[in-house]
Simulated assay, not measured.
Amino acid sequence: MLTVLLECRDNEQELAHTLAVLVAGAVDGLVSDVIVLDHGSQDASAAVADAAGCRFLTQWSLEETLLSARGDWVMLLEAGARPQSGWIEEVSEYAAIAGMPARFSPSRRFRRPFFKRLMARTGALENGYLISKRQAAALARPGMDLDALAKSASCRKLRSELIPAWVIREGR
């Protein structure tokens, strides 16, 4: 089983897009819970999370959040990111046999223009991050956010693709 962690701040629309994709994982029994870690949202992000059955935490520490996660594996995503078809089967299989963290492959359909790819730094969560709960708890430090956790260990690449969150923010 898998726990999905998302951080947000005024990401109502992006959060709705991500949660809509995760429903299929919940129906198939892969996603056991989704926890949204809020950074002071003033929009309806809390209502979107509540409607989807997520835990919405306004005060949190990463260590405590990981301890409360129901899944044995944790998937870190940016609000707006959307795993593409085949992700459920691949993540299920990977979690059953692998021991090290992984990221999704970047979407071939949604790529930044060439010069933006050259000049822009890729965020640690742009392609998601899958890690065992045990490993995540061992790496978590006081004050750490999801981005820092995703930078803390090397990982493999999954075949499944992920449409990154910036696609929604840029209106593509």
Rank of each mutant, 00 (worst) to 15 (best):
S132T: 13
G143H: 08
I168Q: 12
A96W: 09
E126L: 00
G80K: 07
R109S: 13
V91Q: 01
E93Q: 15
A137M: 11
L139I: 02
P83M: 08
R156Y: 02
L130P: 11
N11E: 11
L6V: 00
G128D: 00
K133H: 09
E14P: 00
A165K: 10
A51P: 06
P164H: 07
A47M: 07
L67C: 10
P113I: 09
A49Y: 06
M1P: 05
I35L: 14
L77Q: 09
Y94V: 12
A165N: 12
E161L: 05
R156A: 10
A95M: 12
V74M: 07
L62H: 11
L130V: 07
I35D: 09
A120Q: 08
A81I: 04
D33H: 07
F110P: 01
A165G: 08
L19S: 04
I131V: 14
V31A: 08
L5D: 05
S61K: 09
L6G: 02
G29R: 11
T3M: 02
E93L: 14
R134P: 00
A24N: 09
S107V: 03
I35T: 13
L149Q: 11
S85L: 13
L149F: 04
A150Y: 10
A79D: 02
I131E: 01
D50M: 08
G40H: 09
I97M: 11
S154G: 03
R112C: 04
D10T: 00
E170R: 08
A47P: 06
E14I: 00
E161Y: 05
K151E: 12
M144R: 01
W166R: 04
M75A: 08
A16E: 11
D50S: 15
A98N: 08
S41K: 14
A79L: 04
L125Q: 01
G86V: 13
S92Y: 06
G128A: 04
L139R: 14
Q42N: 15
L19K: 03
A120I: 02
R121E: 12
E7I: 00
S160A: 15
S105Y: 10
S61H: 10
P101Y: 03
I163V: 13
A140W: 12
A69T: 02
A153Y: 01
A124F: 05
T18Q: 06
A47E: 14
G53D: 07
A95P: 02
V31F: 02
G29P: 09
L158V: 12
R156G: 01
D33I: 08
L77D: 06
E90W: 13
S160V: 13
E126G: 00
R141Y: 04
G40K: 07
Q59S: 15
L125R: 00
E63Q: 15
Q42D: 13
T3Y: 01
E126T: 04
